[in-house]
Amino acid sequence: MTPAEQQQFFERMATQNASFRYYLPSKPDVGRFIDNLIRFLFPITQDCRAFTVSTADTYRDLNDKLSCLLKPLKEHLPVDREVIVERFFDLLPNTYDELLLDSQAIAAFDPAASGVEEVIAIYPGFYAIAVYRIAHVLTDLEVPLLPRMMTEYAHSHTGIDIHPNAEIGSSFFVDHGTGVVIGETAVIGSNVKLYQGVTLGATNVAKSMASKKRHPTIEDNVIIYANATILGGRTVVGHDSVIGGNVWLTQSIEPYSLVYHTSQIEVRSLTTEH
């Protein structure tokens, strides 16, 4: 570009930049905060070159880092960012207890898990749930956009997409998890188990539906097997039900239901008779 073209481009960028409603922390900073917070809660993994830092010092550093993440959003926060930081960390013991229940549920249900240590350190399902629960606290504190940055960070690492606004009960289990999608207005009870490829989605994606309940409700003790798709804000899966693999469900079902997909399978020999 010529100097004149460069200047014109820079001015166009400046005009666009001035029109943005929000400024956000960087994605790497958000990711580091998430990973450091989870490691603080569950110090099972260690860096080879790690040096010893007291729990209290780490706790203070995490407080400072969250305050830094909130700084670009300060004009859009309901209260001062330091108040939000204080409230977030006041609620951290509750988040910790919820994550312990999640890890214990996964370890108890999955025969491949050797214990909660493996679940916490290795399982992508637990990691995605942990980031969701952290982000959901900030959602309840009316922090815009940052919670979504957190869950999208987990999404990029695990293939599990959980919207931070979703409501999820205790002892939640996502097994394998790749391709799981849980929409913004989904409500999930306690002791629910999801397998890979499950979608809790909406039947209508029109922008006019943004303030409506668009995603299903899953009651307690439900198991949903791989690649099942459950859609619609009025769809309720009754407690203690089992949804089989590849099911497409857009209507409510009663408690203790078994829903399964049937397909015709034809087996042919590859040998040719002469």
Rank of each mutant, 00 (worst) to 15 (best):
A206L: 14
F126K: 08
I122E: 04
L73T: 09
V53I: 15
P255L: 04
V79Y: 03
E273V: 10
E273A: 10
D61L: 14
D97M: 14
P28N: 09
L249N: 06
E184F: 00
K193W: 00
P255R: 10
A56Y: 14
R133A: 01
Y96W: 15
A18Y: 02
R214N: 10
G125P: 03
E117P: 00
Q6L: 13
E266P: 06
S241T: 08
L101E: 10
P124M: 05
E219L: 11
F109M: 10
T151P: 14
G177N: 07
E11A: 13
I44K: 15
K207N: 04
E75R: 14
S257C: 09
R39S: 09
F10H: 12
Y127D: 00
S114R: 12
D110Q: 08
P216D: 02
R87S: 13
R60F: 08
P255A: 06
D175T: 07
A105E: 04
K74W: 01
A206S: 14
Q251N: 10
R148N: 04
I182S: 05
R21P: 03
H155M: 00
A14P: 03
L270G: 12
G125T: 03
D35I: 05
V137A: 10
W248T: 04
E167H: 10
N36C: 02
V222E: 04
V174A: 11
R32G: 08
N204H: 14
T178Y: 15
H157L: 15
P72G: 02
P147A: 02
L62H: 12
T95V: 15
P147L: 01
E273D: 12
N221Y: 07
D35V: 04
Q7T: 08
L62N: 09
G233W: 13
G232H: 13
L24V: 11
A14S: 11
V222Q: 07
P78D: 01
T58Y: 00
T199N: 01
Y225V: 05
D102M: 03
G177Y: 03
V180A: 08
M150I: 07
F10I: 10
G31T: 00
D97P: 01
I188D: 04
C48I: 14
